[in-house]
Computed example of a mutant assay.
Amino acid sequence: MDDEYFQLIAKPIVVEAYAWLAAEAFVGPGVTIGRRSVLGARSVLFKDTVSNGIYAGNPAKLIRQRRCG
């Protein structure tokens, strides 16, 4: 914020197959949403998720594992 040029640092966000991001969730730059993971509404995620993980909160935390394939 103190950089007079305020350079944008953009990194790709990867959403793997069958992942679900609920309404108004924020995903930080460079984060990978694992296969079949769920990110709850209005959650704020700054770290990669594990496959089948259910995440919620600010910051988002692993709540539990999904019981599916």
Rank of each mutant, 00 (worst) to 15 (best):
D48L: 09
Y18L: 06
I54W: 07
V38D: 00
R64P: 00
F46R: 13
A17E: 15
D48V: 08
I63T: 02
G30W: 04
C68W: 09
A17R: 15
A23M: 11
N52P: 02
G34S: 04
Q7G: 04
D3C: 11
L62N: 00
S51Q: 13
N52S: 06
L62A: 05
S43M: 11
R66W: 03
T32H: 10
D48K: 08
A41T: 04
G53S: 13
T32G: 08
A60V: 10
I33K: 01
L45S: 14
R35C: 09
A25W: 03
I33W: 04
G40Y: 00
R35N: 13
D48I: 07
R36D: 10
G69M: 06
I9H: 08
C68A: 10
Y5Q: 09
G53R: 04
G69Y: 12
I33T: 07
P29L: 01
K61Q: 10
A60C: 05
R64E: 13
L8M: 12
L39I: 15
Y5C: 09
L45D: 06
M1S: 15
N58C: 12
A60F: 03
E24Q: 14
V44M: 11
G30M: 02
A60N: 07
A56W: 06
K11V: 03
P59G: 04
S51G: 08
I9E: 14
R36Q: 07
